[in-house]
């Protein structure tokens, strides 16, 4: 078991994936022009993790901004989590949004409607 991480930049989020604890966090902003390239390693790690997951997997998504190019990649990440959830690890996705950020809350609800994994909407102060 290992912890994998990607350091954030002004256009990409910080990603921490502790496979031993079954904890994944995506935090910051996700506005790269080419998001497929950026998210590929994470999708690959999840693929590997799916073979031997922990009994529970907690996911924190705490994004300040994300562009539409990232939104497709985030859906791909969630689809992997959906498969992991079906495969026996209880997955929970915690979707963080700042209290007056209705757009971010709605974005979380869009995913919740598409992905068959329990979501928790977590409001934080600005």
């Amino acid at each position: 078991m290992e912890t994998i991480s990607i350091e954030g930049t002004p256009k990409t989020p910080t990603i921490t994936f502790d496979t031993g604890k079954g904890f994944l966090e995506i935090k910051g902003r996700s506005i790269p022009e080419n998001s497929i390239e950026f998210y590929k390693p994470l999708v690959d790690w999840l693929e590997k993790y799916a073979g031997k997951p922990q009994s529970a997997t907690n996911v924190n998504i705490q994004l300040e901004y994300f562009n539409t190019s990232s939104s497709k990649c985030i859906l791909d990440v969630f689809k992997k989590l959906e498969a992991i959830n079906k495969g026996g690890s209880a997955v929970v996705i915690n979707w963080y949004y700042e209290e007056d950020d209705e757009d971010m809350l709605e974005a979380g609800e869009d995913y919740q409607a598409i992905i068959n994994v329990p979501f928790k909407m977590v409001q934080v102060a600005e």
Partner: peptide, 26 residues
């Protein structure tokens, strides 16, 4: 628009350039 966004997000193919036809809807 919300329904259309979700439909394109879920079914739309992403172009290699990374644009997915979601920008204008968004």
């Amino acid at each position: 628009l919300k329904e259309y966004y979700k439909a394109v997000l879920n079914n739309g193919e992403m172009s290699l350039k990374g644009g997915g036809g979601l920008g204008m809807i968004d």
